[in-house]
Simulated scan of single mutants.
Amino acid sequence: MPDQDQQPVVWAPGTHELGEGARWVDGRLVFTDILAGRLLEVSGTAPGTPRELLRLDVPLGAVAPVEGRPGHWIAAAGTGIALLGPDGSTEWLARPEQDAATPVRMNDGVCDPQGRFWAGSMAYDETPGAGSLYRTDHDGTVHRVLTGLTIVNGPAFSADGRLLHVADSTAGVIRRCTLDADGNPLDMVEFARITDGGSPDGMTVDTEGRLWVAIWGSAAVHRYEPDGTLSAVVPLPAPQPTSVCLPPTGGRLLVTTARLGLPGAPPPSGAVLAVPVDAAAPAAAAYRPR
């Protein structure tokens, strides 16, 4: 739980329309402003103004570092998965949503502990069932793993990579499945359901196996025990939290927020917030190309 005597503070000021993809990489926080196609970073040790690392001419949902290639990223961007260079150069691995029946973009994404990149998609108009979850393997091939979702968020993995948590935000449901060694789902169960009108968005698993979830529309982050029990609610001064990050050093929950659909919303909507908590999580896993 957060320290009740300490309130959330602004860690990185900004008016990002759709901040997302908060990840701990090399001792700093990296995150995206999706619709602006921007990748940003801010210090992991003290609040500060975010710095732009690169900018694309398509939406940029989330990134993961590429192992052994400093400054390079694998990204959920536009209609597919791409490798990005430090200068923003783009090598597309696949664009599976390029010819979708309704316009679709990539959304959230993360690497599992095995070094595979997972990312979800969603229709711009939130057409029910138009979203999918994709897995990018070490050889760069992209596979559609789950279909029939609407707004795919997460995913988040257990420490051994065997358990996958994924949110279908529109349905208000977080599901969990067991994966085989190749990353194929063996089962799918409902892990948690949001009943207060909010929607589950970005999430992460801490070192105790608890799932922390940004709840869009509810100005809160939820913490769930491994059995799905809701064990903590962290209130925030912004209505649309989008993703969460727990540094490996612990002591702090970092939360990206959005101003999308909130014209004239006052700060801190669109900023990155920090809340004191007694929890930690591993740094972002890197993509390991073959």
Rank of each mutant, 00 (worst) to 15 (best):
P2Y: 05
Q4V: 14
Q6K: 15
A12G: 09
P13W: 00
G14H: 00
G19N: 01
E20V: 01
L29I: 11
V30N: 05
E52G: 11
V58N: 01
L60K: 01
G61F: 06
G61P: 09
A64I: 05
E67R: 15
E67W: 02
H72M: 00
W73Y: 13
A75W: 04
A77T: 09
G78C: 04
D87C: 14
W92A: 13
W92D: 10
W92Y: 09
R95S: 14
P96A: 02
A101R: 14
P103S: 11
P103R: 09
R105I: 14
M106L: 15
M106P: 07
G109C: 08
D112M: 08
W118Y: 03
M122P: 12
D125L: 13
L133G: 09
T136D: 05
G140K: 09
G140V: 07
T141Q: 14
V142K: 09
H143Q: 12
V152L: 04
G154A: 11
A156G: 12
S158V: 05
S158D: 09
A159K: 12
L163Y: 05
L163T: 15
L164Q: 10
L164I: 11
A171T: 12
A171I: 03
V173E: 08
T178G: 08
G183F: 07
N184E: 14
P185W: 00
V189I: 15
V189C: 10
T195K: 09
S199R: 15
D201V: 04
G202Q: 01
V205W: 01
R210Q: 14
L211P: 13
G217V: 09
H222D: 12
R223D: 01
R223E: 10
Y224Q: 06
A232F: 06
P235F: 00
L236N: 03
P237D: 10
V244Y: 00
G251H: 09
G251P: 06
G251M: 05
R252Q: 14
R252N: 06
L262P: 06
L262Y: 07
P263K: 03
P266H: 11
P268Y: 00
A274G: 12
V277T: 07
V277N: 03
A279V: 11
A280Y: 08
A286K: 09
